[in-house]
């Protein structure tokens, strides 16, 4: 009885690009609706970076102000904002890991995997919706920054360029977080796991203070890692070339930041898609 080996109908849904994009949009909508329906979620995740902004500005501002390059125009908040934008981009990306583990735990991913939808849509939908969400948080932070005295020293275009760079970085970081989420799988455990890459990158960097005072071994890392490179690129774009270390250029740092983001995507997009395909609860 081999009748059932009849050729599989070529009615197979090819993952055509328009179909993939459509599926991604459906997932983005779903994820964003959650943020809209649970406004506490976004309020709470905005409070933390804004608290950072206020605390650092008023607690450390006085002490650090004097050691800053002239490009900061004597205001710590000018120096801090580009750093915090990148920090928020990195922390916010952690949401990607959390959202995925939650969907895994609730069986939603099982449902998606049993549907004839594009395989990449769940991850892409998740990272894009987190990008939109992080864009919102970052914009809000910038507004608070303006209120407490932040002023860009270059041009509006420079500011927008800086924001765009931070968003690209946030998107790339989301894919690292997607990989972590699919690897850890457990919503309770994942929060701690996301800190593992975020903490060293954010604190051993130029986010809060210039790297000059760090021990040389740490500085070698701090000066060259993606968060510092991106923060420096933002400072260059927002405050001018004077904010950079001697020898580096705005274009150089911006290109290097984009290169890092590209590298992260090249590694973690395929990795997370592979993990997704295998993810079994």
């Amino acid at each position: 009885m081999t009748a059932t080996t009849a050729p599989t109908k070529p009615g197979r849904v090819a993952a055509t690009l328009p179909r993939t994009i459509r599926d991604i949009i459906v997932i983005i909508k779903r994820n964003l609706l959650r943020n809209l329906r649970l406004p506490q979620l976004i309020v709470l995740s905005t409070i933390q970076p804004i608290m950072f902004l206020l605390l650092f500005t008023y607690v450390f501002g006085g002490a650090i102000g004097g050691t800053l390059p002239d490009a900061a125009a004597g205001e710590y908040v000018n120096w801090l904002i580009p750093g915090l934008l990148v920090q928020t981009a990195a922390f916010g990306a952690g949401q990607t890991a959390f959202g995925l583990t939650e969907d895994l735990a609730k069986g939603v991913i099982d449902r998606f995997r049993s549907l004839p939808m594009a395989r990449s849509a769940v991850l892409a939908g998740r990272t894009f919706s987190d990008l939109i969400r992080n864009g919102f948080v970052i914009t809000l932070m910038l507004v608070v920054g303006f209120i407490i005295g932040f002023r860009y020293q270059t041009s509006f275009a420079g500011l927008i360029g800086g924001l765009a760079l931070a968003m690209v970085f946030s998107f790339a970081f989301s894919w690292i977080m997607a990989t972590i989420g699919l690897f850890v799988k457990n919503p309770e455990a994942v929060q701690a796991a996301t800190f593992i890459p975020v903490f060293p990158l954010v604190f051993a960097s130029s986010v809060f203070v210039p790297t000059q005072t760090m021990p040389s071994w740490l500085r070698a890392f701090a000066d060259n890692q993606p968060v510092t490179v991106t923060v420096d690129a933002l400072r260059g774009l927002i405050l001018g070339e004077g904010a950079l270390l001697p020898g580096s250029t705005v274009l150089g740092q911006a290109s290097l930041s984009l290169f890092y983001s590209g590298l992260i995507l090249a590694v973690f997009v395929p990795l997370s898609i592979r993990l997704y395909r295998r993810s079994v609860n």
Partner: peptide, 25 residues
Amino acid sequence: GVDVLADPKAARTKIGLAGQFAAVD
């Protein structure tokens, strides 16, 4: 009529699944 292991994509167009725990948002 679809080999689930060889062509899961085609199989997914033929099936519906309600898992052991409700997977709703």
